[in-house]
Design a protein around this nucleic acid. Structure first.
Lengths: 144, 144
DNA sequence: GCACAGTAGATGCGCGCGCAACGTTTTAAG
DNA sequence: CTTAAAACGTTGCGCGCGCATCTACTGTGC
């Protein structure tokens, strides 16, 4: 089966959209809260996790970062007091990244900005049907 | 208007899909042709442009890179002989990035890999309706 | 009990990128 | 013509990331 030009350009357009939206989210978060998008994602994932903690490994997967990348990012967040590392009792190799009170505060501060930006730059352009269709496409793509 | 959890997670899923697909394209291009995705995009854009040349500025926009980022990328491609810089007669500030014969060869070599990867990791999962719907969504998002 | 592969996370290293600043050229205003 | 402002591309700089490697620990098989 051959690719039409339509189909081919679709991937580039998607990439373009993703980069543009991510750039805007990042810009607004940095501007308003001096918080990088990746940092926001970490705080957000931790806040949603039971015990506000996640193994470094799990966390890395969720925020689309390599293990080493996450190590440094958590270093930085820990330096800012937003996160701490705690040993894992059941596995002495493992560490939890744990959200601190300050981290939760910072997250709560930034969340309205994040939500507004996602709405403004992404969801507002779509109707309910688009959202459903998009979800189904993402499911087909295996991102679950 | 409030965001449902469904809607909220949509953006993260989209990001996930984009990162995953781009990663696979890049991996296959590097593996088979020692060519980074960004480099492929540059060669591809140049090949499609009239005279196989594009102003640095235009090119930067098309490949989603900052001006300085493109400067370095073109440096590398030029070092490899895939691209050359040529002065712009009508505007002495401007430079063209021009695809060389070797660059075109390299592009032709890599293109089947690229197309196959885009098909395998993206388009194969979608039907014609998805493609149309996706295009319409991207249009709504203003990526045109 | 002891080796041995596998896993978790940290670290050395290099690379690609963006930002801010710069020199050059063009354009606009007076 | 003169001067100011904007545009084009490059460069210095620092940062965040991934890969490969390392150490420490786990668990499997004998």
């Amino acid at each position: 089966m051959n690719l039409t030009v339509e189909e081919l350009s679709l991937w580039r357009l998607l990439q373009r959209a993703q980069v543009r939206i991510a750039g805007r989210l990042e810009a607004e978060l940095v501007e308003a809260h001096d918080l990088a998008l990746a940092s926001y994602e970490v705080l957000s994932q931790l806040a949603a996790a039971p015990g506000r903690r996640l193994r470094m490994n799990d966390l890395a997967d969720r925020v689309l970062l390599s293990r080493s990348g996450l190590t440094r990012l958590v270093d930085r967040l820990q330096r800012e007091g937003l996160v701490v590392r705690e040993a894992c009792e059941s596995d002495a190799r493992g560490l939890f990244a744990v959200l601190t009170g300050a981290g939760l505060d910072r997250l709560k501060e930034a969340t309205p900005t994040y939500l507004r930006a996602v709405r403004t730059h992404f969801l507002d352009a779509l109707d309910g049907d688009d959202v459903r269709r998009c979800r189904s496409m993402l499911a087909k793509l295996g991102v679950v």
